[in-house]
Amino acid sequence: MEAGLLVQMLLGALLGLSVYLPLRCGQLSLATPGFFAIGGTVAALLSTRVPALAGSGSTYPIASVLLEMVLAALLTGVLALVLGRMVLRLRGIYLAIATIALVEILRVVTLNLEFTGGAVGIFGIPQPFQSAEGYGAFTLVLLALVCWMCDRLEKTRPGRAMAAIRDDELAAASQGINTADTKLLAFVLSALVAGITGVVAAHFLNSWNAKLGNFDASITTLAFVVLGGSRTWLGPVFGGLLLTALPELLRPVGDLRLIVFGAVILVGPLIFPQGLITLERLQALWRRRPPWLALPSNRGRR
């Protein structure tokens, strides 16, 4: 398979996880592309404007990318902390609207600021890897780390508190869970993941502009989770991988490919209202494993 597509699929999976984190405590936040855009802008600005980061070799040093990731994480984390305090008083559709507004504000601001390059954006972003394979390996490690974090989250107290809030916020609060702080934690984690993903995406895409964090991106990333499932972290990962790859895999279909893609997004949730990957389905798959599958991948254990 083409390595470039694999990188975009992995980035899609990371963004899916970013939408999934607030959904774990029942918060429908569409702010992911906003934080993604901030991360990308930070990386684009630092790598094109700060000569000290460029190093002496022919490729851009990975240490600088890591530094950009730390800075992007700091910026998005602080922003999410401040904004989260305000917007997380809203629930359901109102929170969704407020987060869409955030994405729009960031987009319009980026379009109109001189130093972010306006509509053209910032281009000629230096490359830390010579080939798409390098990006693939780097993003895979990043995805594995975030998956590990999500997996830990599902098994530790904050993660269980999130699940409790999702099922019944009032009941959770009456059990002594600090619902405000738990929701804020999920929101901040979501922002961190999106911001860090933005850094990798900016280098991978060469150029960065406001279009990358728009309302369309909010809906696409939400579709990752809706199709994949929001009950376990495998859902958004699978949804992100599948929905990013699908338009490309359908290229042989020709002009019909986006129609088929749309049909998949439409039909998927109709047949699987809980998403493709649910705990029940994973357990069922595990129980029905064919005998030759003596040592299968341990994803059925989840």
Partner: peptide, 20 residues
């Protein structure tokens, strides 16, 4: 001929595909 869409990601994928 590859469809590059009207955005950068699709164009990037189409171009990388052609570079193969």
């Amino acid at each position: 001929l590859e469809d590059g869409g009207s955005d950068e990601q699709t164009a990037t994928l189409a171009l990388r595909r052609l570079l193969q």
